[in-house]
């Protein structure tokens, strides 16, 4: 199975690396990271915390732009241009095709987030003399959340066009981080266990304040990631499997 998934993922990576959006986002994020120390709140004596918080937010936004741009049109364009015919006719299952596409997007996003974080570390080292290793925990959380989001985007894109995919993905992001707002009332408490919350990936505060999160938490975050991705890709396979190409 992996012998077919892996070439598809690598083809997605190669294709993505030729897209200008990857480099534009990378450069833009790097420039903004360099500008963080000039923020006005820097006179308050909490420079390190502010830097980490803004750096994480920057990584999140850049990764979000990248994830949506890579995943929204991946499957629709392959179906429209019929490049998917050559792939499926080789005995590749639709599930392998979708998982390979998602894996490729995950790899590119991971590489980009790693690059952002590397640049942010260099700036932190130059500005504060501290490499701020906690940023990598935040980067991992962002990456995993983007992995969930791209799996959801791939699921929607297997039956819908890019505009619908982006709208749906942003809606999921909003809903995923609004559990306390949407289910804040006492009457809705019982629903909380079923709420598709992405808050598990929100570790901005511990990272910003320098404490980080324990390894067990990182592990549980990984479990949440696997669970959500499995559900999203299962839905994707079900939807795509029913589609006439």
């Amino acid at each position: 199975m992996m012998s077919r998934i892996w070439p598809i993922a690598l083809a997605v990576v190669t294709d993505s690396l030729r897209r200008k959006v990857v480099y534009v986002v990378l450069v833009f994020a790097a420039v903004l990271a360099m500008a963080i120390p000039s923020l006005p709140s820097y006179g308050l004596g909490i420079e390190d915390a502010v830097y980490r918080e803004v750096a994480l937010a920057l990584s999140f936004v850049a990764a979000l732009v990248l994830t949506l741009s890579l995943s929204a049109n991946r499957v629709p364009s392959e179906v429209e241009r019929r490049t998917v015919y050559n792939v499926l006719a080789k005995g590749v299952s639709r599930a392998e095709y979708l998982v390979g596409s998602w894996l490729g997007i995950l790899i590119v996003t991971g590489g980009a987030i790693a690059a952002f974080t590397g640049v942010q570390q260099l700036i932190a080292l130059a500005r504060y003399g501290d490499p701020m290793w906690q940023l990598w925990q935040g980067a991992l959380a962002v990456w995993l959340e983007m992995g969930v989001l791209s799996a959801f985007a791939v699921a929607v894109s297997s039956v819908a066009g890019p505009v619908v995919v982006v709208t749906a993905a942003l809606a999921v992001l909003f809903v995923g981080h609004s559990r306390s707002t949407l289910l804040g009332g006492e009457g809705a408490l019982a629903l909380k266990p079923f709420y598709p919350s992405l808050d598990a990936f929100n570790i901005v505060n511990p990272v910003a304040h320098g404490t980080g999160v324990p390894p067990l938490y990182l592990l549980s975050m990984l479990v949440v990631f696997v669970g959500f991705v499995a559900i999203a890709l299962a839905v994707a396979v079900w939807l795509f499997g029913r589609r006439d190409l």
Binding site: D15, R18, R81, T83, Y85, N86, A89, V92, E96
Partner: peptide
Amino acid sequence: RPEGRRRVGFMPEQPYFPQHL
């Protein structure tokens, strides 16, 4: 089924390929 197509070659009408390759 995918496993039933492993010994088949298919050329679609007007084949398209990933252009960057």
